[in-house]
């Protein structure tokens, strides 16, 4: 059962999209009925046909348990950060100083970057100001970070979150146009040496050297 689910999770993102939109539709109506389910399915397919999303490829399975851990962690962090920012808002005294910190990401996956941006905006201290998957960097505004220790604490926090997300496997989901180029580049080294040996100008010198 769970293996099959993971297969859907990993290999059929389009099926997932239809399921998700159908679920939203049924939840909007609030009651489950076959008419709702069917109507939701039709609307979902219509939406995805009219507003197509870029195709994604997955190089493996996502891990639901690790995903659940990230969700729980972010939920807890959201509670902490809400109280923190609420206090920073209402406490008397001068306004808090802050920093804009550049943080490197170890993978150039778009989904990893997007999920980091989402999570970092909810966890303590940070709002992402700018992010670039190609440059593997994101810039976050860290409220109340007025010394190097606080900056380092933030960096460590991002590293932890990133490691958790990598454990889920989000970096294996890739948007297709970008990934096709990368996939070719990845297989090139294996394919290249063979044609190189049969290149005409490679065999010419050996023939000349023969006699």
């Amino acid at each position: 059962m769970s293996g099959e689910q993971r297969g859907v999770f990993g290999r059929r993102p389009r099926v997932l999209r239809v399921l998700w939109l159908t679920l939203v539709w049924v939840l909007l109506w609030g009651t489950f009925s076959w008419a709702n389910l069917l109507g939701g399915f039709v609307v979902a397919v219509l939406v995805l046909v009219l507003f197509p999303l870029p195709a994604v490829t997955t190089g493996g399975q996502l891990r639901p348990v690790a995903l659940l851990r990230v969700v729980l962690d972010v939920g807890r962090d959201l509670a902490v950060s809400s109280v923190q920012v609420a206090w920073q808002s209402v406490r008397p005294g001068p306004p808090p100083r802050s920093s804009i910190v550049a943080v490197g990401i170890s993978d150039d996956s778009e989904l990893l970057t997007a999920m980091l941006v989402e999570c970092l905006s909810l966890v303590p201290g940070s709002v992402v100001v700018d992010a670039s998957a190609e440059e593997r960097t994101l810039w976050a505004h860290v409220l109340g970070a007025d010394d190097d220790a606080a900056v380092e604490r933030f960096r460590a926090q991002v590293a932890r979150l990133e490691a958790d997300l990598l454990r889920v496997g989000v970096h294996r989901v890739r948007v297709e146009p970008a990934s096709s180029g990368r996939a070719e580049a990845g297989t090139d080294p294996r394919d290249d040496p063979e044609p190189a040996e049969h290149r005409p100008h490679d065999s010419v010198p050996s023939r000349e050297a023969g006699p």
Binding site: R97, S98, S99, I100, W139
Partner: peptide
Amino acid sequence: LLYRDDLA
């Protein structure tokens, strides 16, 4: 009010 600004 910025302690550091890596984006600059």
